[in-house]
Write a protein that binds this DNA or RNA. Structure first.
Lengths: 121, 121
DNA sequence: CTGTATCCGCACCGATACTG
DNA sequence: CAGTATCGGTGCGGATACAG
């Protein structure tokens, strides 16, 4: 069985329409910082804003905020703000986010394993 | 076993460095059109330029060329030009590309399956 | 048919300053 | 600590014209 048959259910002719929900979600998920944030949270431990900034090296405050908002709206992660001073906010994956991350992890693992060979050529 | 442990091998502390081979390859693979092209070819059938344009709806000639070049340089796909008039060029996945696509397909299948629910909220 | 070359707008993104 | 507001540049990406 060809692996691509999994796609035939939703894209019978192999065509990916320009404006469809799948494209939108795909863009959110595969966005430059979206992947890294989902991966960082894939371990299960809730992470704070500053910790996420540290893990996804190079992300600006603006892009972190924007990405977190998008992923939150899509229901992939949960924002837990404790009413404290100073503020203490934790981000964690929702069940839906965990499903998604479970598919992202093998991808990233494969990439990490082959990246050097790929760029060496 | 947590699924994320697959990443611990390469990112022991869960930190994704700014400038590392993995980031570069990740950006290539998760690029707007890169994913769609890899998925279109994941079926195994070689596709021609014009057919790829049709499948990845909305892609411009410029971006198709650019994306194909990148994926080719990374060794994910093979360009087969037959010396004919008019030109006949076929693109297909390399073994490496097939490995990658095999990880991309379940991701896209999951997204296609949940996209409407996700955006409905 | 399969591209390449060029122009150019605008959206993305980073940097900075500021706030609760 | 955890963000928001604003500005400016830059490179992505679309449109068009052209070539082999």
């Amino acid at each position: 069985m060809k692996v691509s048959s999994q796609l035939r259910t939703h894209f019978p002719d192999g065509v990916f329409p320009a404006r469809c929900p799948s494209r939108t979600v795909l863009d959110h998920v595969t966005s430059k910082w979206g992947v890294l944030i989902l991966l960082a949270l894939s371990e299960g431990t809730p992470l704070r804003w500053s910790e996420l900034r540290r893990r996804a090296q190079g992300v600006s405050e603006k892009m972190l905020a924007q990405t977190l908002r998008t992923l939150d709206q899509d229901g992939f992660l949960h924002r837990d703000a404790r009413p404290e001073v100073p503020p203490h906010v934790e981000y964690s994956l929702t069940p839906r986010g965990e499903e998604l991350a479970a598919l992202l992890v093998p991808l990233m693992a494969w990439i990490a394993q082959h990246a050097e060979d790929i760029l060496a050529e």
